[in-house]
Design a protein around this nucleic acid. Structure first.
Lengths: 340, 340
DNA sequence: TTGAAAGCGTTACCAC
DNA sequence: GTGGTAACGCTTTCAA
């Protein structure tokens, strides 16, 4: 394994000079630089990230904490993160979270400034104590799809998203509109689902319509089960607003299984606009997933570049726009047989 | 930032002793150990992975090189990797590859033994020179979904997969069966598609049926375009074997756009069995994606544990089984109007 | 059983 | 401009 002193010896200079060449210091005579560069080339030398990290006090690594990273929405956000990191000198270390224990372990171990230079947290609400400990340790953090006191974040207005979806259904004439989403007291403290439900509830209340709510984890089969139960009610809902497209596809499956046509018998609105949604013709509230990941990573990169420890631009909160994408799963409600 | 000597001072011992406690050396008096443990606790001390890495010559990190990590099949493999790593002491560093340049950069930089302790390569054929350089540098490697000379790998029999799909269609009575898949001279040297095509061709030839082949990248829209062209032919194919489920969904979309019923007018078989496939009712050749990632990671972990530099078990090649999953997109061909 | 000290490969400060 | 030389935080001999 070739080290910096091998290169130094070969070039007939000191290790310090090699280091200066490596780091682009201007205080090196051109002829020397060329000699060093040649030696590097000949030896195929590459500096040890470990040693560099130890010496510089940073490790050129960004930690990404993400719950259920295989979920389509998480993947899409990650894609944005990877895109932003591409070309930067930072490596991406993935911390998957599938349980509160996971989360706590990761946050605890990431306190060390030399495990990652910065932290990107996707969709997972850190506890105030975590934020405090992390920032106290000088760890730059950016939150995506969650907010946190004193931390920069990239968010959307989930509440408004809920309103958008619900208004769309009401405008179509629906009066029995169900909501399927994550329970407010889910083990991770996810809040977007609850905010969407709140928006839904607000609009319904204003319209004098009763809420129909079913709670379950962010899972297609789970949502399918909930929807199946909902569709057995009499009178049954004529529309369902699902808190995510994954859950919406579960609703579509339930409708199909119940022999209901979409949108003639049942309208379905989702949330996210993941890849499958276009394929399934799903009407949904689109949020810029890719963009959120990319922006989050960029903010983090900026904070790291403005090497003042506590960031350069202070706390920034970026709110990304939502957009209703009308496709083929929503339409007017069926004519009500009870009032012909 | 609390260091090992802080702990040592607090416990009234030397740094070496703290290190021994940390690493579970038996040569520490119980009372001393307890004192040290207490100090660690009180100071909330966590060792620096960087310093440990530098000192030990390894960094407790596994590199995963994966092309287009957001593709559903890659995600599923990654899930297996993460699952296997969970509980191990290894971090996962993700190297996404979207171009041959990417690939070369990553392989070059990963030569350094201190950037990752081991390498898992998913679906991407490394060039012989890469393998040589990597193994020469003592970097343990495991390949998943590709094989490489002198390297352990987890694979499936893609050729057989192609035969399975094609036999299924022939058994249903099809005689005009098209193939859509990656071109043999794609820029990454992906080979699974070509092997599947080979299996397809072998079976057709044995049955005396002509091949109908369309090549394009692993992309739904691209496949949709190719399929649309295929479906305009006269006579048109009565079945399509797509080299991946992503491409198969493109074919389904094309059929829908052309007003063709599936499977009455057109049968479609895919490959992989990703999540969307069950939802779409797609008949497909299932390969154990999750399992392949998990097994690959386990092999790598084992190689790292049997700390002999060149691995403990020698080169292992594990072949995972394929399975035809018949759903709703395949059936008998339409009656041929040309011979009533 | 333990402490002291020599690395591990860089960077960065200080002289020359 | 450049070489020497402390760090950086840990592990691992080597003695005691």
């Amino acid at each position: 394994m070739v080290t910096i002193s091998d290169v130094a010896a070969r070039a007939g200079v000191g290790a310090g000079t090699v280091s200066r060449v490596l780091n682009g210091s201007p205080r090196v005579k051109t002829s020397t630089r060329e000699r060093v560069l040649a030696a590097i080339q000949e030896l195929d030398y590459r500096p040890s990230p470990l040693a560099q990290g130890l010496s510089r006090g940073r490790c050129q690594t960004l930690g990404v904490v993400v719950p259920f990273f295989t979920h389509a929405s998480a993947v899409e956000r990650l894609r944005g993160v990877v895109d932003a990191l591409d070309g930067s000198r930072y490596d991406l270390v993935l911390f998957n979270v599938e349980s509160p224990v996971h989360r706590d372990e990761h946050f605890a171990s990431l306190t060390r400034r030399d495990r990652a230079d910065g932290l990107l947290v996707l969709s997972l609400p850190p506890r105030p104590a975590d934020i405090e400990r992390l920032t106290a340790a000088g760890m730059p953090i950016v939150l995506v799809d969650v907010r946190g006191a004193g931390v920069s974040s990239v968010i959307t207005d989930d509440n408004e998203g809920g309103r958008i979806a619900t208004r769309h259904l009401i405008a179509l004439g629906h009066e029995r509109i169900a909501f399927i989403g994550e329970s407010p007291d889910n083990p991770f403290g996810f809040v977007s689902g609850t905010a969407r439900q709140q928006g839904y509830a607000d609009v319904l209340r204003a319209a004098g319509i009763r809420e129909i709510i079913a709670h379950g984890p962010h899972d297609r089969l789970e949502a399918q089960r909930l929807a199946a139960a909902l569709l057995e009610r009499d009178p049954r809902p004529t529309a369902v607003f699902a808190s995510s497209d994954v859950q919406a596809t579960g609703v579509l499956a339930a409708a199909r299984a119940a022999g209901l046509r979409v949108p003639e018998d049942l309208s379905v609105v989702g949330f996210d606009d993941i890849e499958i949604s276009a394929y399934a013709g799903l009407t949904t509230v689109r949020q810029p997933l890719f963009e959120s990941g990319r922006l989050g990573a960029r903010l983090l990169l900026e904070a790291l570049a403005g090497n003042g420890d506590a960031a350069g631009g202070g706390v920034q909160v970026h709110q990304l726009p939502l957009e209703l994408v009308v496709r083929e799963t929503t339409g007017p409600p069926p004519r009500d047989r009870s009032r012909p």
